[in-house]
């Protein structure tokens, strides 16, 4: 806004006033597909109703959006789809509060809202040429999915890829179909694990908490970047484990999942020390987290 606004108003030149841009106005999206990942995790595939917006929409893996159900409110999830998937975004959410319950009730063809992309995204440049070690726990895999899809689409730009997907139980493992597809890619090692007690009789994956499996897999720190996302307690121990394995903090990447409302560094909710997770994050290296107050 310029000072001219007032002057123009006063000089009754009101038709020259620019239309108001509303940063809180979401794009309208049509629900195109609904996929149940687990008993309480669902993935929605959303298409932009405004095609022009859809075509120009681009994001960096790791960025997130504000998804909304009109009448229930907004909620933050990572954009879980591939950046190459133009005109669409996907989100995976776990049934928790008011908005996720409302999202659970939407049907194919319904309209929901989406604002974004917000946040910094993964540092793709510093990942190129590296071996990648992904460790996701539960719904935390959603934050990694876009990056995994990106890396697999640009397979030659990255070294060996390890995908560790953990969950409480076999039933709670997300992206079961995707995992089959991912594992077929060259030079990709897929490891699935469930918490002790979460295995079934025919379970052929690992049994153990994600940090324990990281320890067991013992990725080589040299030439590898570890990218981890999951519940706070898992991240805490995953970071400790990676440190013990000799990963320098600059080569351990995670995401913070603070509560957010505006996504634009204004509402103050995701403030941790001098950073706003929604603007400066959600992707941080362990080194960056180390410099922040323990407030997340």
């Amino acid at each position: 806004m310029s000072e001219r606004y007032l002057i123009e108003y006063l000089s009754r030149d009101s038709e020259r006033l620019p239309a108001m841009r509303n940063i809180y106005r979401p794009h309208l999206m049509t629900v195109e597909d609904i996929r149940d990942e687990t008993p309480d995790v669902r993935t929605l595939r959303l298409a932009f109703q405004d095609q022009a917006v859809g075509e120009s929409f681009a994001f960096v893996p790791g960025q997130f959006g504000e998804y909304s159900v009109f009448g229930a409110g907004e909620c933050v999830f990572a954009i879980a789809s591939s950046p190459a998937d133009r005109g669409h975004v996907e989100c995976s959410f776990k049934l928790m509060g008011k908005v996720t319950h409302a999202l659970r009730d939407v049907e194919i063809g319904d309209t929901v809202g989406f604002r974004g992309p917000y946040g910094n995204g993964f540092p793709l440049e510093s990942l190129r040429g590296q071996n990648l070690f992904f460790a996701g726990g539960g719904i935390g895999m959603a934050a990694l999915r876009a990056l995994i899809e990106y890396c697999l689409a640009h397979r030659q730009e990255f070294g060996h890829i390890t995908l560790l997907n953990g969950a409480r139980s076999v039933a709670d493992l997300v992206y079961k179909e995707d995992m089959v597809r991912w594992a077929e890619q060259p030079d990709v090692q897929l490891v699935r694990t469930v918490d002790p007690g979460g295995e079934t009789a025919d379970w052929d994956g690992e049994v153990g908490f994600v940090p324990a499996i990281i320890e067991k897999l013992a990725p080589q720190p040299e030439g590898t970047v570890a990218i981890t996302c999951g519940p706070p307690v898992m991240i805490k121990f995953a970071l400790l484990t990676l440190e013990r394995l000799g990963f320098p903090q600059e080569r351990v990447i995670t995401t913070l999942e603070n509560k957010m409302k505006c996504g634009l560094g204004k509402c103050g909710r995701c403030n941790v020390g001098p950073v706003y997770v929604c603007k400066d994050g959600p992707v941080f290296t362990a080194a960056q987290l180390q410099a922040l107050p323990r407030d997340f």
């Binding site: 806004m1 000072e3 606004y5 007032l6 634009l264 204004k266």
Partner: peptide, 13 residues
């Protein structure tokens, strides 16, 4: 960045 015009329009007026 991401100017909030609800606020800024009132301010400029």
């Amino acid at each position: 960045d991401g100017e909030d015009e609800f606020y800024t329009r009132r301010r400029t007026m």
